[in-house]
């Protein structure tokens, strides 16, 4: 079995049960150390969590557990427990921190799962870039289907540039 974070062989297995849901993670020795899983203090996490203010709990939550299912929002310290209790969130970043859980609820609340309305003006360009990528993808498929490999190569280069462009902008969001 390979490490979840790199290509090395996994030797450390971490299982966490939260509210009856099990989350398994496999790590290699060095990644485990980086994440603080093999830290002797890490093993006493349960004890430590009990008597600690929220802000410190965040630091104790290994990064790899945070994506979409964090216990506490790293930006505003609002907790997933609070969300479950009040149905409200602490800040915009909570949507990223608790994304997995929020998404489950969205389908019962809304007609769709993705925004198709207006975007603030600066983000309109982003939309245009995204639709450009869609169009290029289509063109590429067509070019390949018609065996026009010269055109396909040109489109592929354009596509790579457009994708790079977009991901740079998205990372700034």
């Amino acid at each position: 079995m390979k490490c979840d974070l790199c290509e090395e062989k996994a030797t450390v297995f971490y299982t966490q049960v939260t509210n009856g849901k099990m989350k398994k993670t496999a790590l290699c020795e060095s990644c485990a150390q980086k994440q603080g899983v093999t830290d002797p203090n890490g093993l006493l996490m349960a004890d430590q969590l009990m008597g600690m203010p929220l802000a410190q709990k965040v630091a104790e939550t290994p990064d790899f557990l945070k994506e979409g299912a964090a216990a506490v929002c790293p930006s505003c310290q609002f907790s997933l427990e609070d969300y479950r209790k009040v149905g409200r969130l602490g800040c915009g970043d909570c949507y990223l921190a608790f994304g997995a859980e929020i998404e489950q609820r969205l389908s019962t609340l809304h007609k769709g799962l993705e925004h198709s309305g207006r975007a603030p003006s600066g983000l309109l360009e982003l939309e245009l870039k995204r639709s450009l990528i869609d169009r290029l993808n289509n063109d590429l498929e067509k070019a390949i289907a018609s065996e026009d490999y010269e055109a396909a190569a040109t489109i592929r280069d354009e596509l790579q540039l457009a994708t790079k462009n977009l991901s740079e902008e998205e990372s700034q969001l």
């Binding site: 149905g87 409200r88 949507y95 207006r118 969001l173």
Partner: peptide, 18 residues
């Protein structure tokens, strides 16, 4: 507060999107 996939981010998910 805006996310490309979720639109305008609101305190309650019932208002998310537009």
């Amino acid at each position: 507060a805006f996310h490309p996939k979720w639109g305008f981010l609101t305190a309650c998910p019932t208002n998310l999107g537009t």
